[in-house]
C-alpha cells in the first residue's frame, strides 16, 4: 500500500462520510504515548495484523497527548484542548474517522469529541483557545480497532484469513473500563461484553469467561495508592487463573502495566517460599498480538520482547511459534 494515506478522489468525497469507502483501507491512526514506549508491541503487532488484513494504519501527523483521563467537570474546558487538537489534525487530512488502539486514548478522544461536538457554544469557546489550528468543526468519529474489526473487517473475514489457528489456547479477555464505559462511547455492553471473546473464537482460541473481565485494574491509583491496584490485580488475575486461563488479552497499556507489575509483586509476596514449579505468572498480551500471531505474522513483528512474562514457552508448546 502506498505511503500516501488517501487518494485525492477519495478525499473529495470524505464529506459524504462513507468512511469505509473513503479511506480505501488506509486509516488515520492515533498511537498515544504508551504505544511509542512501554507498549511498542501493541502498535507493532496491530500494524502487522492490519497489513495482513489489507489495511494500513497511517499514523496521524503531529499528534499530541490525549490527556489520558477524561475531565469530568463542567468548567474544565481547557482539558479538552489536547484531544480536540488531535481531532483537528484528522480534519486537516480531510478525514472523518480516527482509529485508536489504547483504551484510554480511545475513551478520552471519543468522549471529548462528543462533548465539544454536542454544543456549538462549547465548540466556539474551545476554538477561541486554539490559535495555531484551524477551527474544529466537530464530527470526527473516534473508533477503536476492535470496533473496526467487528463492524467493518468482520470476524468472519478474519477467521477466513487465519493461518495459525490458536487451537486450544485458553485466553481470558480482559476489557477493563475505558472500552466499555460510559455507555455513550462504550464499544460493547458495559458489564457483560463479548467482542473480545468473539474475536478470540474467530482466531481459534478458547475464550475463558471470568467475572472480573470488565472490572477496573486500579488504573492510575498505581501511582498514588499502589496497594489498591495490587488488590485489584490480585482479584482479576486469580479469577482468570481459576477459570483456567493460560493468557490474558488486554487492550490497554495501563491495564497491562498493572496486571504485569502487581502480579509479580503479589507472586513474590505470596509464594516467596513456594517451589519455583508452583509459581507461574500468566502472560499479559495485547489482543493484537494474538491476532497477528493467528494471521501468520512473523514472530519478530509480534512484539513479545517487550512483555514482562514471555508467552513463547507456552506458545511453542502448542507449536504456535
Amino acid at each position: 500500500m502506498s505511503d500516501k494515506a488517501v487518494p485525492s478522489s477519495a478525499k473529495a468525497s470524505a464529506a459524504h462520510h462513507n468512511a469505509s469507502r473513503v479511506t480505501r483501507h488506509a486509516l488515520p491512526y492515533f498511537p498515544g504515548c504508551a504505544l511509542k514506549d512501554q507498549a511498542r508491541g501493541f502498535e507493532d503487532s496491530a500494524r502487522a495484523a492490519m497489513a495482513a488484513l489489507g489495511y494500513e494504519l497511517a499514523e496521524l501527523p503531529r499528534w499530541n497527548c490525549c490527556g489520558t483521563v477524561y475531565s469530568l467537570a463542567t468548567d474544565d474546558l481547557m482539558r479538552h484542548l489536547g484531544p480536540v487538537r488531535n481531532l483537528v489534525r484528522v480534519q486537516d487530512l480531510g478525514e472523518t474517522r480516527l482509529v485508536t488502539l489504547c483504551a484510554m486514548c480511545y475513551n478520552t478522544l471519543a468522549r471529548s469529541s462528543r462533548f465539544v461536538g454536542a454544543d456549538p457554544e462549547r465548540l466556539e469557546r474551545i476554538n477561541a483557545f486554539m490559535d495555531d489550528e484551524a477551527d474544529y468543526r466537530g464530527g470526527v468519529e473516534v473508533v477503536h480497532l476492535l470496533e473496526l474489526l467487528r463492524d467493518e473487517v468482520t470476524f468472519e473475514a478474519i477467521e477466513a484469513k487465519v493461518e495459525r489457528p490458536l487451537d486450544g489456547l485458553k485466553v481470558a479477555p480482559y476489557y477493563g473500563c475505558m472500552l466499555l464505559r460510559p455507555r455513550e462511547v462504550g464499544i460493547d455492553d458495559p458489564d457483560s461484553p463479548g467482542v473480545l471473546e468473539a474475536l478470540l473464537s474467530a482466531l481459534g482460541a478458547e475464550p475463558v469467561d471470568f467475572p472480573q473481565k470488565a472490572e477496573c485494574c486500579g488504573a492510575y491509583q498505581t501511582v498514588s495508592s499502589p496497594e489498591i491496584a495490587r488488590a485489584r490485580v490480585g482479584e482479576i488475575v486469580s479469577a482468570a487463573r481459576w477459570a483456567g486461563a493460560e493468557l490474558i488479552a488486554t487492550s490497554c497499556p495501563l491495564c497491562t502495566y498493572n496486571l504485569e507489575h502487581h502480579q509479580v509483586e503479589r507472586e513474590e509476596r505470596e509464594t516467596r517460599h513456594a517451589s519455583p514449579v508452583t509459581r507461574h505468572e500468566i502472560p499479559i498480551l495485547y489482543f493484537t498480538q494474538l491476532l497477528a500471531l493467528a494471521l501468520g505474522v512473523s514472530e519478530d513483528k509480534l512484539g513479545f520482547a517487550g512483555l514482562k512474562f514471555d508467552p513463547r514457552p507456552l506458545l511453542s508448546d502448542r507449536e504456535l511459534v
Partner: peptide, 24 residues
C-alpha cells in the same frame, strides 16, 4: 493534593503518571 511526590513508586509508566497528576 492527592499525590505525594516523594512516594511515587519507581518505574511507573507515563500513562499512569499523566492520569494520576491530572486527577490528583
Amino acid at each position: 493534593t492527592g499525590l505525594r511526590w516523594g512516594e511515587i513508586p519507581p518505574g511507573v509508566p507515563q500513562i499512569a503518571l499523566v492520569g494520576a497528576t491530572r486527577k490528583l
